[in-house]
C-alpha cells in the first residue's frame, strides 16, 4: 500500500509544469538573453510611456542651450541630462521618443516580411515544381541587388517617408525569410510524422501550417529577432540618408545624420543615438539566441 502511494506521488511530481514556467526556466539559463530581454523591456516601456518619462518635448528648442554637453561635463546642466543638439533640443527626450519609432519600425517590418515570407516559403517548399521555381528565382533576383540600394530605389519611387521606408525594408528582407522557410519545409516534409499526418487524412493547409510549420519555427524566430535589429539598422540608415523619417521626427538614424557635422565639436550629439542603435540591436540579437534555445524542445533535457 505504502509503495503504491509513493508511486503516485512520484508520478505527480514528474507531471510537466506550466508551459510558460518551463519556457522561463530554459530561457533564464542564458544570462545574455535575460539581459537583452530586460533591455528590450526597458526600451518598450520608454517607447510606450515616452510622454511621461521624457523630461522635455522632443521638438522644443531651447535657444539658450544650444549644443550643451551632458550634465557630467563642464558646462553641462542637469536640466539636459545627455545634452542638447544644434538647435537646443534635449537629446535624452529625443532618444526616448526615438525608441518609439525604432521599435515600431522593427515590429511592422518583421511582421510584414515574416508573414509574407512564411506564406511564400511554405507554399513553395510544400508544392514544389514550377510554382517554387518562379518564387525562388524572383527571390534570387531580389537578393542580387544590394539591399540598401534596393530599399533606396523603392523609397525614391514611393517618396521619402517613414511608412515608405518601412515598406521598402520589408520588401528587401523578404527573400531571407522565404529561403529559410522553404529550406526547413523541404527538410521536414519527407519526415515520417508528416507522412503519418497525410495517412491520417490531413489536407494541404493543415499539413503546411499545423504540421510542418511549427517545426520550422526555430530558425525563423532567430531570423526574426535578427531581422528586428536589421530593420532598425536599415531604418536608421535610410533616415541617415534622408530617405526615411523626415526632420524634425526624432528618429535615431536621422538624428545621427543631422548632427554629423558637429562630431568634432560636440561628440555627444552623434554618440548617444549611435549607442542607442547599438544597444537595441545587440539586445535583440541576444534575446533572439535565448529564445531559440528555449523554444526548441529538442534542446530540452
Amino acid at each position: 500500500m505504502g509503495n503504491s502511494t509513493n508511486v503516485v506521488l512520484i508520478e505527480n511530481e514528474i507531471a510537466p509544469p506550466h508551459p510558460l514556467k518551463e519556457f522561463w526556466k530554459y530561457f533564464s539559463e542564458n544570462k545574455g538573453a535575460v539581459i537583452g530581454l530586460y533591455f528590450i523591456v526597458c526600451a518598450v516601456i520608454c517607447a510606450v510611456f515616452a510622454n511621461f518619462i521624457a523630461p522635455h518635448s522632443p521638438f522644443d528648442q531651447y535657444r539658450d542651450a544650444i549644443l550643451q554637453p551632458p550634465f557630467w561635463l563642464d558646462g553641462g546642466d542637469s536640466k539636459f541630462l545627455l545634452g542638447t543638439d544644434d538647435v537646443g533640443r534635449d537629446i535624452l527626450s529625443r532618444l526616448i521618443f526615438g525608441a518609439r519609432l525604432s521599435l515600431f519600425v522593427g515590429v511592422i517590418v518583421v511582421t510584414l516580411s515574416l508573414a509574407a515570407g512564411i506564406f511564400l516559403g511554405v507554399t513553395a517548399g510544400y508544392f514544389g515544381g514550377f510554382y517554387e521555381t518562379v518564387i525562388m528565382r524572383l527571390m534570387d533576383i531580389m537578393l542580387a541587388l544590394p539591399s540598401l540600394l534596393l530599399a533606396m530605389a523603392i523609397v525614391a519611387i514611393l517618396g521619402p517617408s517613414l511608412q515608405n521606408a518601412i515598406l521598402a525594408i520589408a520588401v528587401v528582407v523578404l527573400p531571407h525569410y522565404v529561403r529559410l522557410t522553404r529550406a526547413s519545409v523541404i527538410s521536414e516534409k519527407n519526415k515520417d510524422y508528416v507522412t503519418a499526418s497525410r495517412v491520417g487524412g490531413a489536407g494541404p493547409i493543415r499539413m503546411m501550417f499545423d504540421v510542418i510549420l511549427p517545426n520550422c519555427m526555430a530558425p525563423l524566430i532567430v531570423q526574426a529577432t535578427l531581422g528586428f535589429s536589421a530593420a532598425i539598422l536599415d531604418a536608421a540608415a535610410l533616415g541617415f540618408l534622408g530617405m526615411g523619417a523626415q526632420p524634425p521626427t526624432p528618429e535615431w538614424g536621422a538624428m545621427l545624420a543631422n548632427s554629423l557635422q558637429f562630431i568634432q565639436r560636440a561628440w555627444w550629439v552623434v554618440t548617444f543615438p549611435g549607442v542607442a542603435i547599438l544597444l537595441t540591436v545587440l539586445a535583440f540579437n541576444l534575446a533572439g539566441d535565448g529564445l531559440r534555445d528555449a523554444l526548441d524542445p529538442k534542446m530540452k533535457r
Binding site: K191, D192, Y193, G200, G201, P214
Partner: peptide, 23 residues
C-alpha cells in the same frame, strides 16, 4: 478515399521521426 483513409493506418520504423516533436 476519405473513408478508406481511416481503414488503413501505418506504424513507422523510426519512432523518433514518426512523432511530431512540437505536439
Amino acid at each position: 478515399k476519405k473513408t478508406l483513409r481511416s481503414k488503413v493506418q501505418i506504424v513507422f520504423q523510426d519512432p523518433y521521426g514518426s512523432l511530431n516533436p512540437r505536439k
